[in-house]
Simulated assay, not measured.
Amino acid sequence: MTGSLALDVDRIRREAQRTIDAGPVRSAYGPDIERVISVLNNVVAAEVVGWLRCTRQAILAHGTAPTPTSKLFEAQADRKMRHAVAVADRIVQLGGQPNFDPATLAQRARTDYSTADDAALRAMLEQNLLAARIVVPTYRQIAHWLGDRDPASRHLIESVLIDEKQNARDLTALLSASSNAPAPAPSPGRPLHRGTPDR
C-alpha cells in the first residue's frame, strides 16, 4: 500500500537500547547523578539511625505497659523506617544502589545515635527533638537543591520533611506538657509518595 508508514526498526531498536543503557533518569542529571544518589543515601542513613534510636527508646519507655511516650516513639520509628525504604526505592529507580552498610551509617546520618544512660524519658525526648531539628533544615535544603530536575525525588523528600516537622511538634508538645497533663496521641503520619522515574 502506497503512503503507508515505514518504520526504521533498526534505528528504533538502537535508540531504545541507548535509553535502557542510560538508566531510568540519568539523562536528566548528567554527571550530577552520583551526587544525587549519594545525598539520597545520606537521607537513608539518617532515617535508619533514627529508626534504631526511636525503637530502642520505645522499648525503654514501654516498660511493663504501653505509655503515651512509648507509643510516640513507636510511631516515629515506624515513620522513619518507611522513609528509609521509600528513599531507597527511589535510589534504585535512579539507577543507584541503596547503602544500608552498618559500618558507615552513623557517619552518613548527620544525626547522632546517642542514648541516655539513665533511660530518662525527658532525655530521650530531647535527643529526638535535637535530631529532628537537624534533619528538618537538612531535608529542606535537599528539596531546594533537587529543584525541578527531579520532581519525583523532591516530592518524596518533601513528604519526609512534613513527617519530620510533625515529629518535632509531637516531641515539643510532650516536653512542654506538665507531668499530670495527658500527653497527645502520636499523629499517624502521611502516606509517603514513592518516587517514580521521570519520563
Rank of each mutant, 00 (worst) to 15 (best):
T2N: 02
G3Q: 01
L5F: 00
L7R: 00
D10R: 05
I12W: 08
R13C: 05
R14S: 02
Q17P: 01
Q17K: 00
R18Q: 11
I20D: 01
I20K: 01
A22Q: 09
V25K: 09
R26Q: 13
S27Y: 07
G30K: 13
I33G: 05
E34Q: 05
R35S: 12
I37Q: 10
V39Q: 15
N42Q: 14
V43W: 14
V44G: 14
A45C: 09
A46M: 11
V49C: 07
V49I: 15
G50F: 03
C54P: 00
R56H: 11
I59C: 14
L60F: 15
A61K: 11
P66D: 13
P68I: 09
F73W: 12
Q76H: 04
R79M: 12
H83Q: 12
H83W: 14
A84Q: 15
V85H: 14
A88K: 08
D89K: 09
D89L: 15
V92H: 03
Q93K: 09
G96H: 04
G96R: 09
F100P: 06
D101E: 13
D101F: 00
D101C: 12
P102N: 00
A103S: 04
A106Y: 07
T111L: 08
D112C: 03
D112R: 14
Y113V: 02
Y113Q: 04
S114D: 05
T115G: 08
D117Q: 02
A119H: 13
A119C: 15
A120E: 01
A120Q: 02
A123I: 04
L125Q: 08
N128F: 15
N128C: 13
L130R: 14
A132R: 06
I134E: 13
I134H: 05
V135I: 01
V136P: 04
T138I: 00
T138V: 03
T138C: 07
R140D: 01
R140K: 06
Q141T: 02
Q141C: 01
I142N: 11
A143L: 03
A143S: 10
L146D: 04
G147V: 08
G147K: 08
P151Q: 05
R154C: 11
H155M: 05
L156I: 10
I157T: 11
E158P: 05
V160D: 12
I162D: 04
I162S: 00
D163C: 00
E164G: 02
E164Q: 09
N167H: 09
N167P: 06
R169D: 15
L171C: 00
L171Q: 06
L174I: 02
L174C: 09
S176N: 08
S178N: 00
N180F: 06
A181P: 00
P182K: 04
A183I: 01
P184G: 10
P184R: 03
A185Q: 12
A185G: 05
P186S: 12
S187W: 01
G189F: 01
R190Y: 13
R190Q: 08
P191D: 10
H193I: 07
H193L: 13
G195E: 13
P197V: 10
